[in-house]
Structure formats: C-alpha cells, structure tokens
Design a protein around this nucleic acid. Sequence first.
DNA 1: TGTTTGTTCGCACGAGTTGCAGATTGGTAG
DNA 2: CTACCAATCTGCAACTCGTGCGAACAAACA
Lengths: 149, 149
Amino acid sequence: MRSPADLTAAFRAQGLKITPQRQLLFRLLDGNDQHPSAEALFHQAADEMPGISLRTVYQTLNDLADMGELRQVSVGCGPSRFDPNTSDHHHVICDRCGTVRDVYVSGADNLAIEGLDGFAAVTPSIVFHGECTVCARPEPNNNHSPKEH
Amino acid sequence: MRSPADLTAAFRAQGLKITPQRQLLFRLLDGNDQHPSAEALFHQAADEMPGISLRTVYQTLNDLADMGELRQVSVGCGPSRFDPNTSDHHHVICDRCGTVRDVYVSGADNLAIEGLDGFAAVTPSIVFHGECTVCARPEPNNNHSPKEH
DNA sequence: TGTTTGTTCGCACGAGTTGCAGATTGGTAG
DNA sequence: CTACCAATCTGCAACTCGTGCGAACAAACA
Ligand SMILES: [Mn+2]
Ligand SMILES: [Mn+2]
Ligand SMILES: [Zn+2]
Ligand SMILES: [Zn+2]
C-alpha cells in the first residue's frame, strides 16, 4: 500500500472524495503488519473516531483492495485479514490465537508441480497453520486468551 | 477416506450407529474427486433420499473430518469443500466456476522459507487460484454458468 | 418386543459480509 | 461565501455458511 499522502492523491485522481474516515483508515493501515480483520480495524478506528461505522471500514477496505493497494487474506476460518503489504509473500497463522505473520518463500522455481494443466493465470497462496510460541506452551498458566478463533 | 465397508466397521467400533443417511454419504464420497461442498453433496444425496436433511450432511461430514477420514478444504471464498483424498496434496481452484482439482507438489524440501521462526507444528496449505480451460475462453459463447462463486 | 442411546431433522441463531436508502458532506462552480 | 450535486456514511435488513438445540425417531441389543 502506498503512503496516506499518495493514496489521497490517487483517490482524488479517480474522482473519489477524501473523508476523515478514509484518512484515518489510511493512517491506521500505513505500515501495519498485524493483518487486522475489518472488525479489529474498526475498533482501532472507533477509538479515535467514535461515530465511525463498521460498514464504512468494510467499504474502504474493499475499495483499497479493488485498487490493488491492499491484499485480502483468507486464513481458513474466521474473518478475512487485510494486508497493506502487497509484496509477493505468504502467511503463517496460529490456529489458537489467530496471530498472522509474513512468510517469504524462495526457490519455488525448482518445484515439481503436477495438476495445474489446463488452468491459466494461476497464482499460489500459501497459508502455514501452526501454533505461535505463546500458545504452544505445554500446560502452564497459558491464560493467553484466543483473540480470534 | 476408507471404503464404505471399512467406515461402517470403524463407526460400529466406536459405538456409532450405521444409518441409511450415513451409508448413502459414505457411498457418495467414496472415490469422489469433485471436492463437493456440503450443499452440493446434500443435493446429490437428496436425489436418492428425498427426506435427508442438510443438517445431517454437515454432521456426517464433520464426524468424518474429526475421524481423519475427510479433509476440509477452505478455498478462500464460498463454502468449504470436502475431500475424501487424505493424501498429502494441494489444490487449484477456478475462481470463475469454482472447480477444484488436486495438485501434487514435490521438492518442497529445498525451499527457502523465512518467517516461520517461533511457530510450531506448521503445515502448509496451498491453494492455486486461476481459471480453468472452460472459463478461460476469451469471449465466445462462454455460457458456462458459474456453478459456485 | 422393549429399552437404551445415538441420530435425524427443522428451526432458530451466530458470524461475517453486503445491499439498500436516507441523511450527510466533500468538492467545486457561481 | 453559498448553493449544488455527486460521492459517502451510517444503520439496518438481508444474505451465506455453518452450528446449537430439542423433540421425534430409529439402530443396536437383550
Ligand atoms: Mn502479509
Ligand atoms: Mn483434493
Ligand atoms: Zn498463538
Ligand atoms: Zn472454470
């Protein structure tokens, strides 16, 4: 995703308006590596702008995704995550707490892939499922509540 | 997934009952490489057993998945698909019509993966997104209706 | 045939997301 | 600065996919 300033210019260039809601979301997403859900972002936004609507957050996220500024990451269960990092990368998710982190995979060229015949414009999306350090602790006071599930 | 006969034995061994509904679903899933959704399977089942409930289909699919006889495949959008093929494999999906096919990936050992540090018991799940031959046709009478979306 | 569970089914509910429409406001022209 | 219009925001209904619940039902077994 580009900087809030660049996004502002890009939105204006398309005849789209710059609203306080959009500016706030641009700022909250700028450099955000948390892979927040729409709901999570909504809560953050509501802290600074109490009247903002969840609907507006969804709307803006969809707009940004349509413009290619944001990637929507489906993690298998629970809500979609949104990712301002549009570089070629993949993800690990902790199936207990829902934490998502970036994973960079290289050397995929010398991979033998069988079964893609007949499909065009294929792009892979890899999600590693596992447990993060916090959640993987055997038994002790693991009062780490699942933030999402 | 094991054969309907073997599943029948396995269910009995666990004190579970063998109902006509379960037998029908065992049969419809046996060797099925279509990656059907619960709904799709329900329609097939309803052809042979008009009174069967969608709830029962979900229930049975979950039971089989819990027993490790079935894999539940999340394809990013739309309903989960169910897969009696429990071998180590991945999937391509046509983003237009929803067709899912098996993909076998080998040589993943000499892959450089960065970012998994701190995560345990990680297993990758790869979904290739693209367009199947039927849907990729440029313009002509592509009256191929999206079966799912 | 009767008893005991596990199962089925219909329906209500829940999560996540989108459609809709009236109220609101940014951008701009006068 | 004011007026206007189109884009936007917001709240709510609706929608999709899936699950919880409880009454009716039926396998398994004595
Ligand atoms: Mn990412
Ligand atoms: Mn498969
Ligand atoms: Zn965790
Ligand atoms: Zn297709």
